[in-house]
Structure formats: C-alpha cells, structure tokens
C-alpha cells in the first residue's frame, strides 16, 4: 500500500515536470501580453506585471500631450494589437476562410461518399481507388505546382487562392464513406418508397445521420486551417487585406520595434485563445476530431 503510494507520487512528479514545460510558452505568452516594455526587457514583474501606467513614446511623437499618452501596459498591448495591425480584419478573414473551406468540403464529399457506399454503378471501384491514391498526396507537398496554376489564372492574392486547394478533402470522403457503410440500407429504401429523390436522400436523410461524424470532421478541418501558416504564406504576397491570423502575426513580428513585444504577444494570445478555449470546453469532442485520422 505504502509502496504504491510512493509510486503514484513519483508518477505525478514526472508528469508535473511535463506540465510545466508544456504550459511554459502559454504562460509566457499571456504574461508578456500583459506587461510593459520595460518589464519585458528586464524580465521582471511576475505574471501580470505591476500594471504601472507608462508613457507611450510613439503617441507623444505624434504630438499628443504626455497625460493623454499615459496608458496601462495590458490596455496598451491589446489596444495596439487591434489598432496598429488590422487584427479584426485578420480574424474575420480567418473565419471566412475556415468556414468556406469546411462547407465546400462537405458539399463535395457527402454526395461522393454516399455514391461510393450506397449506390452501385459502373466505375465505382475506380473512383474509390482514386480516393485511396489521393490520400497519399499531402496538399502542402504540391504547393508549388498549385501556386503556378493559381498564378496562371490570376488568382494569387485572393480569397479563392486561400480556399480552392482545400475544397477537396479526400480524407473527408473516405471518412464519410466509412460512416455511411454503417447506415442501414432499410433507411434509404424507406426514403425511396416515400418518393424522395437521391439528391434529397443525401441532404435530408444521410446528412442528419452523419452529424456526429461531421462534427468531428468540422473540428479537424477548422483547427487545421485556422492554424495553417504555410499555404497563406505562399499565395498571399503583401495584400494585407487578405491576411489570415497567422500571417498577420508574422507580418507584425517582421517589422517589430522594441516596444511592441507586448502587443505582439497580445496578437498571439488572441489568435490562439479561441481554439484553446473551445478545446477546454469540449475536450472529448476535440480529441475525437483531431485524432480522426487515427480511426481508419
């Protein structure tokens, strides 16, 4: 009894060291986003800093009186994050891109998955082999030819460039097909008896049964594309209006002056928070969604 108690304590000790290392950058990120430039430079002030108001030099340079430019560090960092960089615009772009990608993926994948699992037609095996083959090709790996194609049709620096390469989720087709295979045929036969067209069977019978799988796939897709940096970096070259959140952060870091570490960390915090909070609220669902690739 005594020994297992020691063993348990030891395990917790080892895991807690892991916890500290895993949490450290999150802790530092939020901490820096609250501190004043001087506290960041000297690594002082604990977690939240002293929140002693300081004079914003840049604001004084613009010709404002010093009293109007005295700000609290946390307020300064977050206000600067939203004013100096069009962070709201970035976030909006992120939402537009991730939501569009997911919706188009579903519209394309669902009928295909239904046909592959519940309809018999000549060439079905060929289509399914094509799906299995395309699973081998990661989109990031063929970024270069995609970039060339998009620039040939003049789509570089557009929402379309951010969305189009992701409209086909071969994995989504595969996943939904596997799911539909478990749906009993009687359900579909009954719908046909009721005179439903194949088209409405997909959207009014199959879609509702697939909600759990779709939710998991939604999490998988949204997390991947909200956090994606590589692809936006390739196809958005300089047009700030189209920046996604990671691009915006990278751009802000690119022309950084000493005072802006705090605001930069504020931007990072704003970008990371939505998914982290959503994850903490619905852990089981998120873990299911992200590890979807594991349920083959």
């Amino acid at each position: 009894m005594m020994r297992s108690g020691i063993g348990e304590t030891f395990k917790h000790l080892v895991l807690l060291i892991g916890v500290v290392i895993v949490i450290a950058p999150f802790y530092m990120m939020v901490s820096y986003s609250l501190k004043s430039p001087s506290e960041i430079q000297t690594n002082s002030g604990g977690f939240a800093g002293s929140q002693q108001p300081f004079v914003d030099e840049y604001c004084v340079k613009l010709g404002n009186p010093e009293t109007a430019c005295t700000v609290r560090p946390a307020v300064y960092n977050y206000v600067t994050a939203f004013s100096k960089a069009p962070l709201l615009r970035y976030l909006l772009n992120g939402v537009v891109v991730t939501v569009s990608i997911f919706l188009i993926q579903v519209v394309v994948a669902l009928p295909c998955a239904y046909a592959l699992s519940k309809l018999t037609f000549y060439g079905r095996d060929v289509v399914f082999s094509l799906v299995l083959f395309c699973l081998l090709i990661p989109v990031h790996a063929i970024a270069l030819p995609l970039y060339i194609m998009l620039s040939k049709v003049g789509l570089i620096n557009s929402y379309a460039a951010l969305i189009v390469p992701w409209t086909i989720s071969v994995f989504g087709i595969f996943l939904m097909r596997q799911f539909f295979l478990t749906v009993p045929d009687e359900l579909i036969d009954a719908a046909r008896m009721d005179g439903m067209s194949e088209f409405s069977i997909v959207w009014r019978v199959m879609l509702p049964t697939a909600v759990p799988a779709l939710l998991a796939f939604a999490i998988f897709s949204v997390v991947a594309h909200w956090n994606d940096y590589f692809w936006p970096r390739v196809v958005i070259t300089g047009n700030q209006d189209l920046f996604t959140p990671p691009l915006g952060l990278r751009d802000f870091r690119g022309d950084l002056d000493g005072n802006d570490y705090g605001p930069m960390m504020a931007i990072a915090t704003v970008i990371v928070t939505p998914l982290v909070v959503a994850f903490l609220i619905a852990q089981r669902r998120f873990i299911e969604g992200i590890t979807l690739t594991g349920m083959k």
């Binding site: 999150f26 956090n227 959140p245 990278r250 982290v276």
Partner: peptide, 14 residues
C-alpha cells in the same frame, strides 16, 4: 494535448 490546438507559428514565436 494543448499544443496540438495552438497555431504552431504563434507558439514558435513565443
């Protein structure tokens, strides 16, 4: 599991 959720770019900068 937290790091899996966070944008790698942001955490790399931190």
């Amino acid at each position: 599991f937290l790091p899996t959720m966070a944008a790698l770019l942001a955490m790399a900068i931190v």
